[in-house]
Design a protein around this nucleic acid. Sequence first.
DNA 1: CAATGATCCTGTCCGC
DNA 2: TGCGGACAGGATCATT
Length: 273
Amino acid sequence: MPELPEVQTVLDGVVSSLGSLRLTGLYDLYPGTVKGANIEEAFPARLKNARRRGKYIIMELENGYALIIHLRMTGKLVWDKDEGEAHRHERAYFTVEKGNRLRFIDPRTFGKITLCPLDEVENHLPALGAEPLEAEFDAAYLQERLQNRRIPIKTALMDQGIVAGIGNIYACEILYRAGINPDAISNEIKLAHLKRIVAETKAVLAEALLHNGTSVSDFRQVDDKQGGFQEFLRVYQKESCPQGHPVKRSKHGGRSTFHCPICQTKGRVNPAK
DNA sequence: CAATGATCCTGTCCGC
DNA sequence: TGCGGACAGGATCATT
């Protein structure tokens, strides 16, 4: 499940593969994957700048257009030769100069590629919260955004409008490292504990970035290599935590939560229950 | 406005 | 060997 580190890894891979080569076309293989009018007008074009906002990849083209790519759960971008059969789950592809092709492969078909004018990118993005690795994401920010909310902290960390880029895996790992109970109510958590959450968020994401993301199911880099952070997971899909305690499994918003009831006790005003 | 739950989709896994 | 059902989950929409 691509979250911030995986999305950044894919983005870096695309930029590195593409270099100064021009994108020459974009083709939809599964109707609805590619959105936006005037697809032909946008190509050919070189990349002017590529950036990430939350889990969105934004590729700014030199001709005034931009591509917004979201991988959702199973989306992959794969660098390949411009020949051969389409992959079984290929939903769209870019043709690229010098006989190259960038394939968008997505078994569950939830991923999207949107083409729009550069100055309309923000209109096509939802209201996103702070970037967790930027200085703007600190305990004061988090406290302000949580003060009127009464939701489990794990749900809050996965809310893209509060902080952008964290999904299920990193939410579990952040809370384990911070020692916070995932059911802690967002506006009851002490500032000191919010500071721990912020610090561990930055640490976990930075560490995962160094390892090119986490490959727990089918995440792959643009060159098809796996990420490496799955080696460092402490509770996600684990039977026991690094202390040897059994890991408990529950649900938040339909997502599986993994936490250690012994290590993660902070944040509950009333720890009973 | 806030919180919760259903929905989209398909490969994989489990039990019988 | 095959089948039904549960599960995986990011974002969006509907409901309370």
